[in-house]
Structures are given as structure tokens and as C-alpha cells.
Design a protein around this nucleic acid. Structure first.
Lengths: 227, 227
DNA sequence: AACTTAATAATTGTCGACAATCTTGAATCT
DNA sequence: AGATTCAAGATTGTCGACAATTATTAAGTT
């Protein structure tokens, strides 16, 4: 599952390893959202010095998983509904643009590759008639490849480096194995079709609606819960 | 001029001060783009320990002004044409969305305030019939307020916290006192009009075209230079 | 002379300790 | 009793030194 993790250069330094460990634990909720981070405590837990722990904290801050205040300390970000919707707004804007660029930038070979991946996802989906796999892996994989296809390093950094794990965190902690799987699959097909047609304008619009639909689905769901 | 600097909480720790100093020097080009950063050398230059210098470097990395490689070191980012155009693409997507949100989120009072600011910019512009002030301060100020008006913290963080100084760096180093001042001013007025009409869709489109026009202007200019 | 290889120098990563700041709790005052 | 002040405790910020890695230089070989 980490194969589709972006900007992934094998963790070489020990701060890298602590960073990845903590990243995983925060995303999965083992370190609770909103909780305070005690440097001495965690340094002891991971058996490293406070310096290298702080180095790891700096990287966690870079991908928006923790927040720091001077002379006070760090906290894991809270998972609020407002925050979740805000991220979807950002994704709508950035991935929409990435999709527009992908339509002109992706190589024919990359498009064919993505088509076959999508086809295999469709088979898997029907085989398991399952929702989980597609939603977890397939969706992230599709979006990841389109973003890469934009060939815009700045876009790629923001989406795959800084927002990616925050999105995963929300998915984990809000338990999103949404029932939008089949519809999302169809939408992916339509998006890819627009890309294959080299129609950037349409591709952007479809991607934006795809993400907006996801957002509205969540809004609806959460409204139901809070009656 | 730093009054419009976002997310600005008076630098309390010494690492903060070093960060701001270096940020300024990098943006202005006193520390050359693309140059290698020697931790011992800079620690001596600023009279601080390597630890606090590294803390400052981490923040510079957060706003994309330097890049680090494990066991190798840090370099100031290069100012390439490709990089500049990439940022404008990101801005087009994000500020477009911010503008759409601002149309529904800004308070009437905020809109009126921005209108009067814009009006005074118009006077200043005519008074000096100058390009510099407007382009430097006014443009950044207008965009900054619209972004804040989106009321989307994630958007605000990315645009005002992570990309803001990189944009300034490009402006400085490519010497952009563009002749688009009067046109940009009119475009700002049109955008604000759409916001005041609470027409998010139009506001987004106008903002996107405004930024895209700026980008194309730069493309044209740079093509001319490289004949 | 050009290319490898080995030793040296320099730089980055990590560590533990001290200083400055914030938080907590008890004692005091209104 | 409630609020305020002050002191003790704990946490974060900063420092200098050591270890690990990389860059540089010199020697040696073809």
C-alpha cells in the first residue's frame, strides 16, 4: 500500500524512520487526534534523542499532521468536519487543475497504463463486489496517477507530499468506506476518457465534480448523524 | 510592507528571527538562488548554534525556499521559468477557488473595506502614474484579502503561508514591475464587483483569468528575451 | 594522461546537558 | 469562597560535542 506513496525516498536517517512511524500512528489514530505531544515522553518511547524526535516533528508539521506553538508544544491536528470539508475544497481546486494539465501532459503510454489499471479495478470490484479495496487503494491510486500526470512539480508536492497523509487520516478516522464506490468508478472512467481525448477543460470539470460529489456525500452523511 | 504578511505572529524565539532574516535575504537575492547552504558557515554568520539554525532551515523548507537532501545538505531553490509558471498554475487554481468562496463568505463590511482600499490604490496609481507601488503592495494586498475572505484555513495556509514568499522571491529576482498595472487594476475592480454581487462562479472565473493573464504576460516577456 | 582507490577533511545527523519559558499548585489577600 | 501572587515542577528552546556519512585530495595503477 505504500507503493503509491508519493515523494517516497527510502527513509535513510533515523529521523526519517521515526517520522514514518509516527505518521502511520497518527493517520491510523493510534496517536489520538487533538492530543498533546510530549517530546520527552515520545523520545523515550522511540528510544531516540529529543533532537531527532524534533526533526521528525518538523516533518509531521510539514504535512499538516501536527501543529506547533512556540514555547508551548505540539498537538496532533483535530479531525473536524469543517477541516475535512476544507480539504475537499482544496483538492477540488488543485486536482481539477492537475487533471486539466494531465490531459495535455500525460504520455499515451501512461494513459493506456491507467486505463488497464482502471479495468482491473473494475474486475476486482465485481469479483469481491466489495467496496473496501476499491475505495482504499484504487481511488487513491487513480488520483495519484492523474496528479503525477500533471507534470507540475509544485502541484505534485502539495497534493502528494503535504495533503496526501492528511486525507488518509480523515479517511481512517471518519471510517470512510463510502457507498459511492460504483459511482466513483464510473466517474473515474469518464475522467480518464476526457484525458484520453486530450480535452483538458472537460477533464478538469469532471474531476471537480467528482470530488465535489464526494464532499457533498460526506456532508449529507454527517448531517444525518447529527440529528 | 510586512503588515500584510500572513500568519504573522511576532517572532518570539531566536530561530524565528533567523528564519525571518534568511527568508528576507533569500527573497531579495542576497543569498543567491540555487546556492548551497553551509550550516557551520551560516551558524557563525548569525552567531547562533547549528541547532537553532537548522530549526530556521526547517521553516524555510516549509515555505519552499530551500530544499534538503539527507546527508548532503540544503540548497536555495532555483528560480527557473518552469518553476515560475508552475506556481502561477497553482495560484490560478487555489486563488480562483478562494475567490469563489470569498463571494459567499466575506462580510459586507470586509467588502466595503476592500472597495475603499482599491479606490485609494487607484488614486495613488494616478498620482504617481507609477507602476511600482501598485504592483508591489497593492496587488499583493488585494490578493491577500481575497484569500483571507475565503474563510478556508487550509487554503489560507497554503497560499499565505507556504507559497507567499516564494511568489515574492520570483517577483524580486525576475524584476517584475510589469506594465500590466492599469489592466490589473481594472481586473481587480471587476473581481471585487463579482464578489460584491455574491456571484462565486463569476468571481472564480475572473480571478483565474486575471492570474492566467499575468502568467501569459510573463511567458511572452521571457520568450522575447530568449530570442 | 586518465581512471581507481584510499586516506583525509569537511559536513550532516544525533546526542545529552543547560537555559528560558510555560504550567501547576499552594499560599495569601480581598 | 473566589481571585491573585508566587514558587516549584515540567516542558520547550538552545548549546556544544561526538558519530556517521559524504566530499575532497593524493597516491597508485593501467
Amino acid at each position: 500500500m505504500n507503493s503509491l506513496n508519493p515523494a517516497r525516498q527510502a527513509p535513510v536517517t533515523t529521523a526519517d524512520k521515526i517520522f514514518e512511524t509516527m505518521q502511520h500512528e497518527i493517520v491510523e489514530g493510534e496517536i489520538l487526534a487533538g492530543s498533546k505531544i510530549s517530546e520527552p515522553e515520545l523520545a523515550k518511547k522511540y528510544q531516540v534523542s529529543r533532537s531527532t524526535l524534533r526533526e521528525a516533528l518538523n516533518r509531521l508539521e510539514k504535512c499538516h499532521l501536527i501543529e506547533r506553538k512556540a514555547n508551548v508544544g505540539s498537538r496532533v491536528v483535530e479531525c473536524t468536519v469543517k477541516g475535512l470539508l476544507e480539504i475537499y475544497i482544496v483538492r477540488e481546486a488543485l486536482e481539477g487543475m492537475a487533471c486539466r494539465l494531465a490531459a495535455t501532459q500525460m504520455a499515451d503510454s501512461e494513459i493506456r497504463e491507467l486505463q488497464s489499471i482502471l479495468a482491473s479495478h473494475g474486475q476486482d470490484k465485481k469479483l469481491q463486489d466489495g467496496v473496501a479495496y476499491y475505495q482504499e487503494e484504487g481511488d487513491l491510486d487513480f488520483h495519484y496517477r492523474v496528479i503525477q500526470g500533471s507534470n507540475n512539480q509544485q502541484l505534485i508536492n502539495i497534493l502528494c507530499g503535504e495533503l496526501y497523509h492528511l486525507v488518509r487520516m480523515y479517511r481512517c478516522q471518519f471510517g470512510m468506506n463510502s457507498p459511492r464506490a460504483t459511482r466513483a468508478y464510473d466517474e473515474h472512467k469518464a475522467i480518464l476518457h476526457a484525458i484520453a481525448d486530450r480535452d483538458g477543460e472537460l477533464a478538469e470539470m469532471l474531476m471537480r465534480r467528482h470530488i465535489a460529489a464526494s464532499r457533498k456525500n460526506i456532508e449529507r452523511k454527517l448531517e444525518q448523524e447529527n440529528l
